[in-house]
Design a protein around this nucleic acid. Structure first.
Lengths: 97, 97
DNA sequence: TTTGATTTGACAAATATAGACAAATTACTT
DNA sequence: AAGTAATTTGTCTATATTTGTCAAATCAAA
């Protein structure tokens, strides 16, 4: 149950890599990766996939973490966050969308 | 388990009002309200509250519907939508946010 | 202190979203 | 069917949000 940022930071650490190295491997500015890790910038889906490949992580899991970041972001500071999640779940499951 | 749009459309119908009338009461362009009803524009929170007041609806319920619209929007077309919802729920409940 | 790593802040460019209006379509009414 | 009213759609501009980049600041280790 982790955020995208925490996952990629711990993976990077696990492999003993510096931001600089990940940055050059993925061709993404290292300041940006720092922000991803801290959660103050949201990566694109393509970037998420790059990270999954590079760190050899399960793509679905990483995308799930990233999506949950986005959900949490849209619900930030909302009283009705939990209810909204339940409603969304129902609507998607038995959905008339 | 309804979308914001369906709720306000059915309320409007229930009261026998035309878009024009709702538009002038809320001071919102009627084309915009039409789009809200059809779900192809997302209202601001202030607008949602205006609708709740005008139609005498429970504000929390309407906001919940609107939030769930936004969640569904961010999950559209994603394989991992349901998992992401579950993860988000856990993270918010027992959250390290 | 010096060096290297990470984080932060600020900016310009790109992208997305909002509201307004006119035109087109659809639905009633006679 | 014609005429009128209601709704929907498309487009445009303005505004806001988000993005990647760079330089500077902070932090960490030696």
């Amino acid at each position: 149950m982790q955020s995208f940022g925490k996952i990629i930071k711990s993976e990077r650490r696990k492999k003993g890599l510096f931001l600089r190295q990940v940055a050059s491997a993925l061709e993404v500015d290292q300041a940006l990766i720092s922000k991803f890790e801290k959660g103050d910038r949201k990566p694109s889906k393509e970037q998420v996939e790059k990270f999954a490949n590079f760190f050899e992580l399960d793509k679905d899991e990483l995308i799930t973490a990233w999506l949950s970041d986005k959900i949490i972001y849209t619900l930030q500071g909302e009283e009705n966050a939990e209810n909204a999640l339940r409603v969304a779940e129902q609507r998607i499951k038995y959905g008339t969308e």
